[in-house]
Design a protein around this nucleic acid. Sequence first.
DNA 1: CATGAATGAGGTTTCATTCAT
DNA 2: AATGAATGAAACCTCATTCAT
Lengths: 192, 192, 192, 192
Amino acid sequence: MAKLQKSIEKKNNLVQATIELVNNNGFHATPISKIAKMANVSPATIYLYFESKQDLVNKVYLEVKEAFTAYAFATYTEDMSVVEGFEIIWKRIANFKLKECKQALFLAQCDNTPIIDEASREEGIKHLQPLLDLWERGQDKGIIKPVSNYLLYAYTISPLAFLMLTQQRGQFKIEEKHIEQAYQAAWDSIKL
Amino acid sequence: MAKLQKSIEKKNNLVQATIELVNNNGFHATPISKIAKMANVSPATIYLYFESKQDLVNKVYLEVKEAFTAYAFATYTEDMSVVEGFEIIWKRIANFKLKECKQALFLAQCDNTPIIDEASREEGIKHLQPLLDLWERGQDKGIIKPVSNYLLYAYTISPLAFLMLTQQRGQFKIEEKHIEQAYQAAWDSIKL
Amino acid sequence: MAKLQKSIEKKNNLVQATIELVNNNGFHATPISKIAKMANVSPATIYLYFESKQDLVNKVYLEVKEAFTAYAFATYTEDMSVVEGFEIIWKRIANFKLKECKQALFLAQCDNTPIIDEASREEGIKHLQPLLDLWERGQDKGIIKPVSNYLLYAYTISPLAFLMLTQQRGQFKIEEKHIEQAYQAAWDSIKL
Amino acid sequence: MAKLQKSIEKKNNLVQATIELVNNNGFHATPISKIAKMANVSPATIYLYFESKQDLVNKVYLEVKEAFTAYAFATYTEDMSVVEGFEIIWKRIANFKLKECKQALFLAQCDNTPIIDEASREEGIKHLQPLLDLWERGQDKGIIKPVSNYLLYAYTISPLAFLMLTQQRGQFKIEEKHIEQAYQAAWDSIKL
DNA sequence: CATGAATGAGGTTTCATTCAT
DNA sequence: AATGAATGAAACCTCATTCAT
């Protein structure tokens, strides 16, 4: 029991270290040895928890992706109205992207480069279903434009990644009012 | 004379090879040796054209970024109306992102990871001024929402990168009608 | 425990190999790969013991220099008379230079070329103090010429490096009588 | 004729550049490309004047060695007395070592490391004959100790190389009085 | 379970030399 | 005679991974 706990702690340290280092230096400048050092662990120990460096980054990706979707839908229930539901989900996502910077930044790198297995990438996409269902409801009711989910996602969710990046780079400080403006823009872009 | 010409050709080959390989394998899996091989050149030759691998990728980034902005504003003049001008610029950008996939994909990687020097990144941002001016005109006339440029960019331009990626991954085939829908979404999100 | 011992052995092998190869081929023709081969070690292993090739050669230099001064003063005590003390130190140094050829040869290369860090060079000079003190005593008593330490060193110790080199190159075989002659010359050059 | 002149100038530039760079950086950090740059010449041009890098450094060594011996014996004639002759030769050598620092420094590196061909080294030694003859004369007359030439050289000439090095490194500034002291020490060490 | 030591493979870069002009 | 461009070979060094403990 104690051992298991300890193991979980080490694994978490490894995950955190990976995120931190990939965020700051990029995957190309994140050797296993540095991850081990930051997690206070021997390089060899990493291979007790993960099969390879590729496996490590895949697993970290999936873990973060799951944390993201869990957070996104935590306060949403399917009995909400389309408008209400969209606002709730969108704001949760916005909150995650802009407050959980580290995780969001890590996802941005993984989603825009080939550092993740194709398999892991597909696995990571699966969890968005509630949002897709919501959109379908909205489209059936004539509230949301009858366009592809990809377009809806592109114009409501993906801009948040861009804003997160600009904030991360110190170019743009995002305050409460900007979130409201962003929400309005997102909604305007897909509402009928 | 013949020498100089040959040099330009080799440099172009190197740039193309870099884009191709970074796109397909990621920066972390793109060694100098592979770039050299694809460009039909000795690894040592790369160092006649670029100071280092970092310099190479910086220069490629700037070259592509310049090609992008040149393309974006090629058909725009400042005497156009705000609505007309925005549509023209937006569609040029959309065209570039969705037709010049290789270059767009490369930019997406560079813009979302720390593989580029901070200096080069800042240099690359400079060329968007005409679009920012256009937006200011639109805001002065009460046509465009009075929000930060970053928000305007996030909701009109950045979604195109996302769409390009989905297309590149074979998830979503973008046709003419989607571009029209996307344009509508972009405009709806920022128009007053 | 066994690990630590092994480490010391490997480090010594590396030090010996470096001396051997630099002596025979020169620093410019002593790649890390050859050092590794002679020490029966992978090139990568060298970097577990030393930070860089420069660090390796600096450390070897300091180690040899310390061995040299330790040897030089091993039988000297400050209560000896000036004449007795000088003879004892001088002969120890002569013995070292002419018997521990490898180490002396290595020092000659390091002391006459810029292969050593300035910092390491300064560090290496520090240990001669007892000799300088002895000379000062001799000068106070009117036994030794009142000239700079550099001159005293130049005329008593530095000739031994030259003799070592000639012997090393097979030009001149140094026997006991030559050492006596050399000692006489050294003493004659500085005595009042 | 004009061409030949030009060639000689280029060759001299190459010799000077080699001395300068080997002095400052060491042979191991003196690539052909740097020599070429400092001599305002293409790397390829070097191979019109020398067969290889090794040939270049050999030739430079011999040239400097010849300049040294020519300078050493320029004012000496065999009809001088032993004492007078020795003083004249010694002071010329001292002057060369301490005033023509660059050349002396270069010789020190070549004489203490294996950067020169064995053949070139032997060639370089030949020119000292007049000094050896002088010593023999002195020994025959009972003025100079009956010891090996190597010892005589070690105690009269080789210390000058050490003093030159200390001066070069800024540890010891050699003035006129030190030269007199050094001469006295040299003479004291070998005179009967 | 955990590790420090070790390393083969491969990374980026340099360099002496050649070649086409 | 002179060169800038080109390069194969090799330099230094790093890294993902394994192994003995």
